[in-house]
Design a protein around this nucleic acid. Structure first.
Lengths: 95, 95
DNA sequence: CATGACAGTGATACTAATACCGGTGCCAGA
DNA sequence: TCTGGCACCGGTATTAGTATCACTGTCATG
């Protein structure tokens, strides 16, 4: 077993990320945001629906940039969804 | 053409990310930081050396968390390395 | 000198991310 | 009604990320 498949927690974490991005997108269309972010609409759709649970770093950066989101705010929003994550435990989240 | 290979700019961007993480690691060992971040030392090593130019979002998050880095600061540091990136152009960086 | 820890490399194996395509369904406007 | 745009899905093809392993080299310490 060389690369372990994503765990359930990791997939759920991806879902929360997707929900956060989707709500930040507000009224704008997927096509519009994806194009501005330089990714394909399918990819953004999959991220928002949680079907890409661990997107590439710069993909998330680009989308957050288009949406005017701070990454730190985005992350703290994710943590808030499942209750408080104590300091130092973000590292092992989902493992 | 289904998935385009990474461009030179994207690889260079990955190198800058790696350098930023490496300098933030300061004196700590790769093994120590990687273990706390929940990833393998080889993976962190590859990220720092730019051999993984677009790591997974949560991988970077975990490492930055261990290093006490703000993601927003990390990113603005990357931008500063190659001069100012105007608002709204982060999205198309490296394309 | 021997040993152990760490950095680094390259190969291998496997899963995941991403893009493109074809199809479906919904809905607003001509 | 027809048409166009958007959302969504499933399949396909390709590259990338990640872990494990087996090495080498360096350096400090016994």
């Amino acid at each position: 077993m060389v690369r372990v498949p994503l765990t359930l927690s990791e997939r759920e974490r991806g879902e929360r990320l997707g929900l956060a991005l989707r709500s930040a997108r507000a009224g704008r269309s997927i096509v519009d945001v994806a194009t501005r972010a330089g990714i394909s609409p399918e990819t953004l759709r999959k991220i928002e629906r949680g079907r890409i649970p661990t997107p590439a770093f710069f993909t998330v950066v680009a989308v957050a940039d288009v949406l005017g989101l701070s990454l730190d705010d985005l992350l703290s929003g994710l943590a808030a969804d499942t209750g408080r994550i104590p300091d130092g435990e973000m590292a092992t989240l989902g493992r």
